[in-house]
Design a protein around this nucleic acid. Structure first.
Lengths: 347, 347
DNA sequence: CATAGCATCGTAAACGTTTACGGGACATGC
DNA sequence: GCATGTCCCGTAAACGTTTACGATGCTATG
């Protein structure tokens, strides 16, 4: 005999009572409850996940889905690891377990997601790196699985999402650089159709036009969102003739900064001296010379907000988080450094 | 009616046959099996995880446990993300799902592990960042949960483990630096009692003595295994009087290199010019100047080996991986760069 | 004293699957 | 024609929980 039955026999009470005692149901004598709790602790009893999930139809697990291809080896690293910590904190409050679901680079994300959902693995889901048109959103909403997207998408079913304020970043960045005399400002864009690329480009363009500067598609540099990509951009910029070359650059991705610095330097340009760089805050950014002028957001807080917004859509927890359907852009704080030098007089 | 029952009714056969057909059991007519498979695909049937797990006593999930405190925000990033990819590849072969279990910085690792195991969450487990004395190993082995440790430990119950060849790294590193005239070689050691620290120090010491160089405890630099830690070490080194200051440094951790370079440079020392650095290969390492002389290992392959060695201990899969109990040190390849300059003549 | 109400607990069904067991149909061998 | 074997399939039990329902004993109320 195992599990709750064994516990019940030992205490000479019914398994129903044991279960109620453990789950904090009201109709059980406080004294009995204590006996049960003590005995459970003594023999190290822990309810079996499968049995409970089968009966309750709920698993107590929330999943954070990532594609290992683009994200993990690219932007993923530092960014997500910090976000997890925040999510975790909220989950722990409700005895929820967070698991990270890695969709391998060889798997089809949509198929992978469907399997996870159909098997009833998780009660709620966080998806990230939303595409411009994201099939996952349709699927999850149609299936009725509670979820939240980290990142916006044109696929909008009124679902909850959270995103960084890339438009603010584009506009503040352009304003600041233009004020320092820059007219040719390069920006990064992802290779895939991650939605943030479109958002950023749109507002970058709008900000330029506000200043009466013509939009030049050659100043959009596509690359992978990692160190190597940053390096390549640096080299490409340095290889351009000075009269068409940008004099400044805005990076939306934190992993690329070190690479960009080095790519520029290797090719004879000096960030903060004759080339301006603005980027995203990150651990590495603190150790760059010159100090990076960047946009900051507490990723841990982002994780907390993300989790709370997800729980707000889950029936069991909605009462604790009366937030409604969260669709929010989180502002970034500008940290002034020394990397956004004025435009060289020649330009 | 739901699930397998619905499917059975639709095909007008028993649920037993449906289950057998789906699970590839032999005693079912091939024609019937096809009908079942087709119908299942048509209506998008996927077996319920809880029901299956409850009956079979097995979940089809392997877990990779990480502590978010030290690992994720520190060494974790690049290192683990690549390892996951390899593990994933092997898991996919057997329709196993890999989930990453994050033990939050506020959770007790032992308690967290126990909860995961007791609830029957996973069929197998990978644990990492083994401590010198690691309670998790005792626990898992006593519980009979298939697992493998990434990293050695003095806690040895004959369990499987895999580890990097830190002793080889220490000896090759010291040999090479001594051959270039260095006598004071600094090394990094982690702040906690992660076992690799002890292993590395022991062999570093042995290698020194082999060359007739006295061991100097002041040349061991403790720090957190991340960028910031590397930076701090660089600053500390630069602040030392030239006559006691090391002239070379070996890093076991890949995340620290950028920080160390910068810490040194900020304080007037020049890696590859008047100070030698050896480290671990990483994406960032490729973009450092001077190019880092480093030790390389394919982390993807490490992940593959890790997963295969784990499966070798799981009854269901052991037949496919006749490896026995794997306890192996994986060699590192030396990549020659320009960062390990000869000792300055003054020293 | 009768009744209602409350606190506490036991009983048993249900969740969705897998699988041991047995049975029917049919072929084969003698 | 009988025994034997094979192939396929249906039946039902089991996995470990949770929870609706009903039963019991006690208290309070009239």
């Amino acid at each position: 005999m195992k599990g709750i039955r064994q516990l019940a026999k030992k205490l000479d009470i019914s398994i129903g009572t044991v279960s109620r005692a453990l789950n904090g149901k009201p109709d059980v004598n406080e004294q009995t409850r204590q006996r049960v709790l003590d005995a459970a602790a003594a023999m190290g009893y822990v309810p079996n996940q499968a049995g409970r999930a089968l009966r309750k139809g709920t698993t107590g697990v929330v999943g954070f889905m990532m594609q290992s291809g683009s994200q993990i080896t690219g932007e993923g690293d530092v960014f997500f690891m910090s976000v997890f910590d925040g999510v975790q904190i909220v989950c722990a409050r409700h005895k929820l377990d967070l698991v990270v679901l890695l969709c391998s680079s060889e798997d089809d994300p949509d198929a992978y997601l469907q399997r996870v959902v159909d098997r009833g693995f998780v009660d709620g889901l966080i998806i990230s790196a939303t595409k411009r048109h994201d099939h996952r959103i349709d699927f999850l909403s149609q299936r009725g699985v509670p979820f939240i997207a980290l990142g916006r998408s044109l696929t909008d079913v009124g679902h909850p999402w959270l995103d960084l304020d890339f438009e603010g970043m584009a506009e503040t960045g352009v304003d600041r650089l233009v004020a320092k005399g820059h007219r040719r400002i390069g920006i990064f864009a992802p290779m895939d159709d991650t939605n943030l690329g479109y958002i950023f480009i749109d507002h970058y363009r709008a900000a330029l036009e506000r200043h009466g500067i013509a939009f030049d598609p050659d100043l959009i540099f596509r690359a992978h969102p990692n160190d190597r990509g940053g390096h390549q951009i640096g080299e490409r910029i340095a290889a351009m003739p000075p009269e068409t070359r940008p004099t400044a650059f805005i990076l939306t991705n934190e992993m690329m900064t070190v690479g960009l610095y080095r790519g520029l330097a290797d090719s004879g340009l000096h960030p903060g001296k004759d080339f301006a760089v603005m980027g995203r805050d990150s651990p590495q950014a603190h150790y760059l010379t010159p100090k990076l002028t960047c946009f900051r957001l507490s990723l841990r807080d982002l994780g907390i907000t993300l989790a709370e917004s997800l729980l707000a859509t889950m029936p069991e927890f909605a009462a604790d988080y009366p937030l409604g359907v969260v669709r929010k852009v989180l502002p970034l704080e500008l940290i002034e450094g020394d990397s956004d030098c004025p435009a060289p007089p020649s330009a």
